[in-house]
Design a protein around this nucleic acid. Structure first.
Lengths: 139, 139
DNA sequence: ACTAACTTTGCAATAGTATTGCATCATTTT
DNA sequence: AAAATGATGCAATACTATTGCAAAGTTAGT
């Protein structure tokens, strides 16, 4: 079972250490984006800074992307497999639920094309929508 | 001259103290969004916390809105006059220039309507575009 | 297998932003 | 004029993010 986890690291040129296998495994079990704190609590006892750097490494290599959802706490989520690691702030929307306080990727909701004012050139975009997520919505 | 500044405060039900007049005056002179630090430096010697709370008050009353541009430092900018103070995370786009590191409101660039997945309900949206602003663009 | 070079990990420490508590001063109300 | 309310200033704190450095682990060359 660790095999696919290990391969996933290899495919991104990340040396598969024990720590990294554990972190990736944990990340793959999440359905919402998680903060460093969540990771620290969710994993067995492990050093916070190492976890921090593990996430950093994963991000540099294009395995995860971080989400700034406006809460002041950075969240992390796995990238799509095909993400190439450069501009993976990709074009999908992030959703923060005001009720359950979870942050989700909406991989199928893309940021629409937009015309900027004269001479502005866009390099990355970050769209966070806040509201009520599907599971918290009573309708 | 302070008259219109004072009136602007009054219109938003903000008691026009000396401090607040100064802060609003300063804000009106900016063409980019500013951080608490910018404000502190730009004003004469004044207490950082008071400035912080002044901005908070302005925000609650719908006079300014804050912008989370992903730099980790919250920026503030004046709202349009007609902003009613409730959902003033309005629908305009914010732009962060990777070159001059300034953050701007693009009041005429609105966030397009978008279809969310089933049962997701949107309450606010925050779109930050990063790139090169008009003044830094050589073209 | 052994050492050198490099990478990862863990602990300590620091930086910076955001935020609250409390006492003082000012302003408005009765 | 006293009481109540709001604003200000200082001190202190809470967090998140980040760096330095030394120890441990891994890889490569001989």
């Amino acid at each position: 079972m660790t095999k696919d986890i290990e391969q996933r690291l290899n495919r991104k040129n990340i040396k598969p250490t024990a720590m990294r296998l554990l972190v990736l495994d944990f990340l793959m079990q999440q359905n919402a984006a998680i903060s460093l704190n969540d990771l620290e609590k969710g994993m067995g006892p492990s050093d916070r800074i190492t976890l921090y750097r593990t996430l950093k490494t994963f991000e540099e290599k294009g395995l995860v992307h971080h989400i700034d959802d406006g809460t002041g706490t950075t969240k992390y989520a796995l990238c799509m497999e095909e993400c190439d690691g450069d501009h993976h702030q990709d074009l999908h929307v992030h959703f923060y639920c005001n009720s359950c306080k979870e942050t989700f990727c909406l991989p199928n909701t893309k940021i629409p094309q937009m015309t900027l004012p004269e001479k502005f050139r866009s390099e990355e975009m970050n769209l966070v929508i806040k509201g009520i997520c599907d599971r918290c919505n009573p309708d």
